[in-house]
């Protein structure tokens, strides 16, 4: 991609992104067919009449070949139609729209806390590598990373909600009551963020140490620039660029983790929506939910890519120069 103008760069990224989204929908639909057992029979029970089964299959689109099914899905998509709930006929778009804000709030607050705690931990470690603080942080980080978020979720729930009763047990809080919603967000956020705190701490630490060994840092040391300023200003900026890229890619994993956390804390959201839909073989809801999740994931990656580009003056002027010609 070196030397490509901004517009081509963007178009290429966007095309790749859309292709990924489309591809994932196709794979999802093909997988649906591979799951053993006729979905209609699972949904309606084994004593359903053949007519009822046929009617349901027609409504879901399972009576047509996969290729046609995919085309119909994308055709409807163009008019903002994601299909209908098998059981009550409500539009999937509406269900997803209702669930989305909860999940996005959870993912963002997890990402934010991961940065808020991970970055200072990385700075503390890099200040004196091999020192006591570094070793303690390394121990904690590896522990955090290797504990799955659903284990943390169950632990937090049992300790702080059930035993100590400091936090609410279930749900997302009352609609409109921001304070209550935030209160309900604390434990799920912690469960989801813990691994990422460790991950950022490790990642940024090694990135910082690499930058600290570079010649431009030695230049600053030769002029007696304070270690604090070197670390917080001149080393942090170059070190955090690769971390941003990895964080954005991790957003997908964060959404995946959100499924477990939402299910355990019984929070409404994309995760629990998809989870419930899979359990009841509510395929249109699964498809719509997964489609939006993948779209979110891809868009986040795209914006991370752009952020990284715009933060680096070398990339900025490279793109500006390419635009000028």
């Amino acid at each position: 991609m070196r030397g490509a103008p901004l517009r081509i760069h963007l178009a290429f990224k966007l095309a790749t992104a859309l292709l990924a989204v489309a591809g994932s929908v196709v794979i999802l639909m093909a997988l649906t067919r591979l799951i053993p057992g006729d979905p209609a029979t699972v949904i309606l029970g084994s004593r359903a009449t053949p007519e009822a089964v046929a009617a349901l299959n027609a409504r879901i689109g399972l009576d047509r070949p996969v290729g046609e099914h995919v085309l119909v899905f994308f055709a409807h998509l163009l008019s903002g139609d994601l299909g209908e709930d098998v059981f009550n006929g409500r539009p999937v778009a509406g269900l997803v729209a209702a669930a989305l804000p909860n999940t996005v709030a959870l993912a963002f607050s997890a990402m934010l806390s991961a940065i808020l705690f991970g970055v200072p931990l990385a700075l503390l470690s890099a200040r004196n590598p091999g020192g006591k603080t570094d070793r303690v942080v390394a121990f904690l980080s590896v522990g955090f990373i290797s504990t799955p978020s659903f284990v943390v979720a169950v632990f937090l729930l049992m300790t702080f909600s059930v035993t100590l009763r400091w936090f609410p047990v279930l749900g997302a809080g009352e609609a409109g009551a921001v304070g209550d919603q935030l209160w309900h967000l604390v434990l799920p956020t912690a469960a989801l963020a813990v691994g990422w705190i460790g991950y950022i701490a490790r990642l940024l630490r090694s990135s910082l140490l690499e930058v600290l060994g570079e010649n431009h840092i030695r230049t600053l040391r030769a002029y007696g620039v304070s270690e604090a300023k070197i670390l917080m200003k001149y080393a942090l900026k170059p070190a955090i660029l690769p971390t941003i890229a990895i964080l954005a890619m991790g957003f997908g994993e964060l959404l995946g983790g959100a499924v477990f956390v939402e299910v355990i804390f019984n929070r409404p959201g994309l995760g629990s929506l998809i989870y419930d839909a899979i359990r009841t073989r509510n395929y249109p809801v699964v498809q719509g939910g997964v489609f939006i999740t993948v779209l979110l994931y891809v868009l986040t990656n795209l914006s991370a890519d752009l952020t990284q580009t715009l933060l680096d003056p070398r990339e900025r002027s490279r793109l500006a120069a390419a635009r000028g010609t």
Partner: peptide
Amino acid sequence: DPMSALNPLF
């Protein structure tokens, strides 16, 4: 080495 003696991001 003047190429690497200056911080590229400032």
